[in-house]
């Protein structure tokens, strides 16, 4: 059986993300502490954080965003293009993610040609 490089760190990031998400309802400060840990683990081990995890974190304070709990989600138009705008309620940072019907905004990870090999 082939081993994935940095598997234990990936597992750790996965676990910390779950904990951070759970904590954001109880104590946002701890949530952002776990978020910070995720980023620093990924930096130390030179790994990429999965975009789904990365997009759920606030860019600035790194706490997990949940609609109406730690952040607000809105759909806004700009130049006839649609964006999802996340506003963090702790540090008031905004983050825009494009979602337009007519354009292809699927992530590279989700595309079938991104999969090279499946281990396990």
């Amino acid at each position: 059986m082939k081993k994935v490089q940095g598997n234990d760190s990936f597992q750790r990031i996965n676990y910390l993300h779950q904990v951070s998400k759970y904590m954001s309802m109880k104590n946002p400060a701890l949530s952002s502490y776990y978020g910070n840990l995720i980023v620093s683990i990924a930096k130390k081990n030179v790994l990429k954080i999965h975009p789904d995890i990365k997009r759920q974190m606030c860019k600035k304070c790194r706490c997990t965003l949940i609609h109406n709990v730690t952040g607000k989600m809105k759909i806004r138009n700009k130049n006839k293009l649609k964006f999802v705008v996340w506003t963090c309620s702790i540090c008031k940072t905004e983050r825009k993610l494009p979602i337009d019907k007519n354009k292809d905004h699927t992530l590279w990870v989700d595309k079938p040609e991104a999969v090279v090999e499946i281990i396990n």
């Binding site: 104590n27 400060a29 701890l30 952002s32 502490y33 860019k59 600035k60 304070c61 702790i90 540090c91």
Partner: peptide
């Protein structure tokens, strides 16, 4: 800066649990 500074973190109450 993209990240919060230490002072800003302290103001948001990240250090005193």
């Amino acid at each position: 800066s993209k990240n919060l500074t230490r002072r800003e973190k302290k103001a948001l109450g990240f250090y005193n649990i």
